[in-house]
């Protein structure tokens, strides 16, 4: 019954209608940004129901790309984001593995401390963190951003990954134990390959978080040469007036790398090897 062709077509049709409605609602404001970014001199936001700009222009994009150092800010952000993402995924997957799969004294306390860290508003930590960065000579440099980006993201990603590692069937671990595999091998050749979707999620979030980070970068970076992209974009907002077309154009350009990372890594969202393994 379920597999009858008519039923299947109906099924698909319903899905597409629902998806299209959701897509429209979710993408609409984005389309508005896109449209405004092609409008000339937009110091005031225009009519949100009018999505096709009257005389579209690439001026905003040309002006954004023409800002001194724009490419440099882009590369600065990319370098920091890539290095931080690699470290975040490596360190948090190791921590998550230990928390969800290994027994050791102090596990509860350490895991609780991770959760506690998640609930503290980071904004209030900014002054103590600033003093720490100063004492460690990490102010005003791109390398100096990395330890702070990684350290602050570890809690979230560890928590997220340990939720996923827990769902790996215990039987698989036990089978490997019998084969004499140590924790390192079980982590590397069992937990990680089985958690590709979760790790991909981590990569996507970690990259987005570090690529977009603004408050800390603004606080510790002074020299123009070491600035990151979000600071450059914020600088398009004026005290009395803002060229929205410019801000939106710059924001849209900044989204591209994040989307590339997303598109590449969402491919791992396919059923892992667990399905075959559990059955037996």
């Amino acid at each position: 019954m379920v597999t009858s062709p008519r039923r299947r077509i109906l099924n698909y049709a319903i899905r597409y209608v629902l998806l299209a409605i959701a897509a429209f609602l979710l993408v609409y404001p984005f389309l508005y940004m896109l449209s405004t970014s092609f409008k000339p001199r937009s110091l005031v936001l225009g009519d949100p129901t009018q999505l096709i700009p009257e005389d579209p222009t690439l001026d905003n994009y040309i002006q954004v790309l023409g800002v001194d150092n724009f490419l440099r800010y882009f590369l600065n952000s990319a370098a920091v984001a890539v290095v931080s993402t690699v470290l975040i995924v490596a360190l948090s997957s190791m921590m998550a593995y230990a928390f969800s799969r290994l027994r050791f004294p102090g596990k509860r306390i350490l895991f609780t401390l991770i959760i506690v860290g998640l609930t503290i508003p980071t904004m209030m930590l900014i002054i103590p963190q600033f003093l720490l960065a100063r004492d460690l000579h990490l102010l005003n440099s791109l390398q100096g951003l990395v330890p702070f980006y990684v350290g602050t993201a570890l809690g979230f990603n560890t928590f997220l990954l340990s939720g996923f590692f827990e769902t790996i069937p215990k039987e698989l671990d036990e089978a490997m134990l019998i084969d004499g595999a140590g924790p390192w091998r079980r982590y590397w050749s069992l937990a990680l390959p089985l958690s590709k979707p979760a790790l991909a999620t981590c990569v996507i979030f970690a990259f987005l978080g570090t690529w977009d980070e603004f408050a800390w970068a603004l606080t510790v970076l002074n020299d123009v040469e070491v600035r990151t992209l979000p600071i450059a974009i914020a600088l398009f907002q004026g005290q009395h007036s803002t060229s929205w077309g410019l801000v939106f154009a710059a924001s849209l350009l900044a989204i591209i790398p994040v989307l590339i990372v997303y598109i590449v890594f969402q491919r791992f969202f396919v059923a892992g090897l667990t399905s075959g393994a559990i059955k037996s």
């Binding site: 603004l218 600071i231 914020a234 600088l235 907002q237 004026g238 005290q239």
Partner: peptide, 8 residues
């Protein structure tokens, strides 16, 4: 010269 966004 160090520009900083006004709001920040």
């Amino acid at each position: 010269s160090v520009p900083v966004p006004y709001d920040d």
